[in-house]
Simulated scan of single mutants.
Amino acid sequence: MRTIEPIVRMDLAFSLFCLQHRFNTPVAKISRWVSKTGDGHLYLVLELVIWYMDDVVGRFFFAAALLAFAIELPIYWLTKNSFKRRRPEEFSHLLQAFITPSDRYSLPSGHTAAAFLMATIIGHFYPSWYDGALIWALLIGVSRILLGVHFLTDVVIGAILGVFAAHISIRYVLTLV
């Protein structure tokens, strides 16, 4: 475990930097709203709306997104329950969470994984929307840190997981074309 101690110290220092300032409560209010835009049920709504509006590309978008979530979610669950990394407020009494997370462990960030998964799929099927989707995914990841429920590395690993699942899914769906 000594090999990851510098990462843990960096994560803790970064979380303290992000959460120990006089604007943390107003920032948390904005972060809460941003984070809610990354809740899982909204992705299904987005996928269905896109499919409805664009029957040709939308059906491939829908298939790729569903497959990507089918890949991402088991990996997310296994990783989270294997590493069992405690959340930031459990590491230091100086850190407080502004929301109650839906599960116990922090690694990886599921909100971030899902946001980057969707941003990657959006970017592939609708390239002109990619910049906006990527900024939105980044804001979701940052919001999870600013809410005190994830460390920086939780968010980075979540982003990598989301992009990975999306790329695997896109490759597979394109073989069906």
Rank of each mutant, 00 (worst) to 15 (best):
H21W: 01
V173G: 09
P74L: 10
A137F: 12
V142H: 01
Y172H: 07
V34Y: 03
L94P: 00
L174S: 13
A68E: 08
L78H: 02
W51D: 03
M53D: 02
E47N: 09
L44N: 01
L176Y: 02
T100H: 13
Y43F: 15
T112I: 07
H93G: 05
Y52L: 13
W129N: 04
R86L: 14
Y43C: 02
R86H: 12
D11H: 05
T175Q: 14
T112H: 04
P74W: 13
I160Q: 01
I121F: 05
G132M: 12
P6F: 05
A68V: 13
L73W: 14
G141I: 13
L139F: 14
R144S: 08
M10E: 10
D55S: 10
S128I: 14
I135T: 12
V156G: 01
L94I: 00
F151N: 03
K80Y: 14
V45D: 00
G58Y: 10
L147V: 06
A115W: 08
D103T: 12
T175S: 15
L95K: 03
V8Y: 04
L139H: 10
F23D: 06
V49T: 10
I135F: 12
D103F: 06
A133M: 10
Y76W: 12
R59C: 13
M1W: 04
S128D: 14
T79K: 03
R86P: 00
A165D: 06
I157S: 12
E47G: 11
L48K: 11
I7F: 11
E72Q: 14
W33T: 08
F116Y: 15
G110N: 12
W51V: 00
V27G: 01
P108S: 07
T112Q: 08
I145Y: 09
D54L: 05
P88K: 05
S128L: 14
V57P: 00
L78K: 03
A13V: 03
L146S: 09
Q96T: 15
L44V: 13
G148Q: 07
A97E: 02
L78C: 11
Q20H: 05
E72S: 08
A113M: 08
A70P: 05
H167A: 07
F69S: 00
D55L: 14
I75T: 12
D11K: 03
F91Y: 15
D103G: 08
A63S: 13
F17I: 02
P108F: 14
D39W: 09
S31A: 15
G58P: 03
A97C: 11
G38M: 04
I30L: 15
L176E: 07
W129Q: 12
G141N: 13
A68D: 10
F83C: 09
P6D: 04
E89L: 07
L139I: 04
A166C: 10
L107D: 01
D11Q: 02
A28K: 02
W129I: 02
S92P: 09
G148A: 06
A166E: 06
R86N: 10
L107E: 00
V163G: 00
F61N: 04
F151Y: 11
Y130A: 15
T153Y: 15
P88G: 11
